[in-house]
Simulated scan of single mutants.
Amino acid sequence: MAERYYAVREDLLPEGILKTEQVKELLRRGEAATVHEAAERIGLSRSAFYKYKDGVYALEQASRERIATLSMDLEHRSGVLSKVLGTLAASEGNVLTISQSIPLQGLANVVVSLDTSSMGGELTELLEELKVIGGVKRANVVGRS
């Protein structure tokens, strides 16, 4: 099923959504050093922040960024993730979030949210570059906004 997006007037949004964007704004402006600090100041649990953070953007913020979410299965060995991140940086992609599962049977799933607004090439080219890195077993785009 394709992702669907809505523009919703602020006064109609649930408190958790609004506070998530407020936490992100504190972090963007450097007024809080950590998610814990920002969430505490706003009065939002960290679990609620992490639940909503990848799906909540102020309209003016979202219009400036193009975000892609990549999912990869990486071998659990030294240097593989470093090479992946180096490839993302070389393509001028800016990592917004990164999450890695605990390795099971020698593989870890890594999900990266990437700001692609400065990238010159296509995501398909980036995926091909990632797939040839030793230790990358799978690389797919799982979302775009």
Rank of each mutant, 00 (worst) to 15 (best):
M1F: 08
E3S: 14
A7V: 15
V8A: 12
R9A: 12
L12V: 07
I17A: 07
K19Q: 09
E31C: 08
A32G: 11
A32N: 10
H36N: 12
A39Q: 03
A39L: 02
E40N: 12
I42K: 07
S45T: 15
R46H: 02
F49M: 02
F49I: 02
K53Y: 10
V56F: 04
Y57Q: 00
Y57I: 00
L59T: 13
E60P: 00
E60G: 03
Q61S: 05
S63L: 15
S63D: 10
R64K: 14
R66F: 06
I67T: 12
A68N: 08
L70H: 01
L70S: 00
D73F: 11
D73K: 12
D73G: 01
R77V: 06
R77K: 15
G79P: 05
V80G: 04
V80M: 06
V80N: 04
S82I: 07
S82Q: 12
S82P: 00
T87Q: 14
T87S: 15
T87Y: 03
A90T: 10
A90W: 06
E92C: 11
G93V: 09
L96C: 02
S99T: 03
Q100I: 01
Q100C: 02
S101Q: 03
S101P: 02
I102D: 04
P103Y: 03
P103T: 06
L104N: 10
L107V: 14
N109E: 15
N109C: 12
V112D: 04
L114F: 05
T116Q: 07
S117D: 05
L123K: 00
T124L: 11
L127D: 05
E129C: 10
L130I: 11
L130N: 10
V132S: 15
I133G: 04
I133Y: 08
G134L: 09
G135R: 08
V136W: 00
K137R: 15
K137Y: 05
V142H: 04
G143M: 00
